[in-house]
Amino acid sequence: MAPLVEVQGLEKRFSVGGAWLRGRRRVIHAVDGVSFAIEPGEVLGLVGESGCGKTTTGRLILRLIEPSAGRIRFEGHDLMALSPPRLWATRQRMQIVFQDPFASLNPRMRVGSIIAEPLAIYERAGATERRRQVSELLDVVGLDPAFAERYPHELSGGQRQRIGIAAALALRPSLIVADEPVSALDVSVQAQVLNLLMDLRRRFGLTYLFISHDLHVVLHMSDRVAVMYLGEIVEIGPRDALYRAPRHPYTQVLLSAAPVADPKLRRERIVPKGEVASPLAVPSGCRFHPRCPLVFDRCRVERPLLRTVGAGHEAACHLNEAPALLTGA
């Protein structure tokens, strides 16, 4: 089956400074050559530290931000080649759920209008039918239809996030980019929203790009996982393979840092050195080398490429040429 989304060599450069009297112009490579594909009905998890470009990647796919380079194919269309009206029409099939439920809903609109707006814009339904669909959508996300008359500020974080999901569902998209959908919520509410997302996936045959900095959440939600570091994907593979046998030191670091709910289990914790490098001063060679516990000379000069290390499993680390060094540690 053809993938629902296919991203190739996606890049986004932001330039900072360079305006008159504002210092030297510098370029931030927020996303630097990211490629992946998502099959229909699949959940791809995208995990990484803050600032690694995962949110930017999500927005680039919807072309909410213009990519600097790369190709995006969605349902067979080359998104980069679409004219504005065609892009507008295609957007109905791809939606986004945001991280901050307190910033992602227009405070001046009632919940009902927020959910009904896309139906009106795309002329999917008349006024009465829209009201009916709003009630139905509220019900689908587990809220009382009476919420339609409320304003966002009257709701809790979890309720708002459900509204955000209902608004994203209104157009019956095939792809939903879930950009840290539970990071801003209480732990107890997180579970409810995650379960809701899983239910909706089954019910509507949705495909997710699930972005999070929380490895546990990603492992729980995803079929496959991609790990990002400083704008690059350093490892991508099936969830279980990546969890049991991570093939990039950064993934190992992430896994070892995630707490495990078993006091008897003792694990070696791998601690990375130093801080995340600034995307303004990307390290030479492998981007992770200044922090890598297994660094050697080659890492400082040669940038490792993604290479296959297992079935559907790729990692970008020189050590995979001599796997004993990496896994036998």
Binding site: L64, F98, N106, M109, A168
Partner: peptide
């Protein structure tokens, strides 16, 4: 730069409507 503006764009708001319905009221 607020997220609801990006969300409104994703849900099909074109520039004029985005300005009048989402930006101006705020």
């Amino acid at each position: 730069e607020r997220e609801f503006v990006a969300g409104a764009r994703a849900r099909g708001n074109r520039p004029l409507r985005l300005l009048l319905r989402h930006v101006l009221p705020n």
